[in-house]
Design a protein around this nucleic acid. Structure first.
Lengths: 137, 137
DNA sequence: CTTGACCTTCCCATCATGGGAAGCCCCATA
DNA sequence: TATGGGGCTTCCCATGATGGGAAGGTCAAG
């Protein structure tokens, strides 16, 4: 049995976040010592590691909860897990596309900007220009 | 002179956000009518549109403030503007790379997952596995 | 003068995380 | 045994940018 600090080191999840995950119900309440300290065993640490890896893959908390539920469910269908993963891939792709669009617009503007000591700047012109024509449309 | 609601429509920034931008000092305090209503002219609307476009390009608030300052400064060097834009491109690229890495890991796992009604799932195996080998390292 | 839409301020929520204070606990060391 | 330092507890606050909503004032049209 380990304290929350040790579990934090072992799992890579900060003690703050462990308490938060417990508070929000993502993970079950930890056991307590007589004096009120939370206690964690290898199983709990494994759960925390699971959560951390899922978060590292960009899953939001509610999807992590879904993954945890499937993980615990021995009768799950792997198709359900894969669906979640595919949805996450799609979400990532959508956000990547958004950012690529921003990047493309910015690259375009940077290319057009002299970048010297003169004040003339197509970047500012674009940002401050009238609404009829913009790179977004 | 228009009200905050009209300025919101004209600029594409919600009334809530206009007040917030004013409160945080991003934009100067709006004029007020005798009864306390905020008033906006074409110039203020242009500023709001500037802010909105910069936000649409992913600039965080503090960078938008920098851009606004350069916009107002008639003696600016366009190089300073370009630097900000290039930094934003770099920031976007960094986040895109992170998300591409997540996506690659997920795609890998999805490929390995049968996705049928059986419970065996390499995705869950990976998330719940021991810490020695993970896709992140 | 009423009505309804709009404005004002203020508080709360998000999402996930961190910081810090006040107070208790535990272990080691003198 | 006393003491000190570090870890634990809860509680509150902050982020960054946005929205929701309540309570109350204002304006314009009827």
């Amino acid at each position: 049995m380990m304290t929350i600090g040790e579990a934090a080191v072992a799992s890579g999840v900060s003690a703050k976040m462990i308490r938060y995950y417990e508070e929000t119900g993502l993970i079950p309440p930890a056991g307590r010592t007589a004096s009120g300290y939370r206690t964690y065993g290898p199983k709990e640490v494994q759960i925390l590691r699971f959560v951390r890896r899922a978060r590292d893959l960009g899953f939001p908390m509610d999807k992590v909860a879904d993954l945890l539920a499937l993980w615990r469910d021995r009768t799950r269908a792997s198709a359900d897990v894969r669906r979640l993963a595919e949805a996450q891939i799609a979400a990532l792709e959508a956000r990547i596309r958004e950012m690529e669009a921003m990047k493309a617009t910015l690259s375009h503007l940077v290319q057009a900007c002299a970048g010297d000591e003169r004040p003339d700047c197509p970047i500012l012109d674009e940002l401050g220009g009238s609404p009829c024509r913009s790179a977004g449309g």
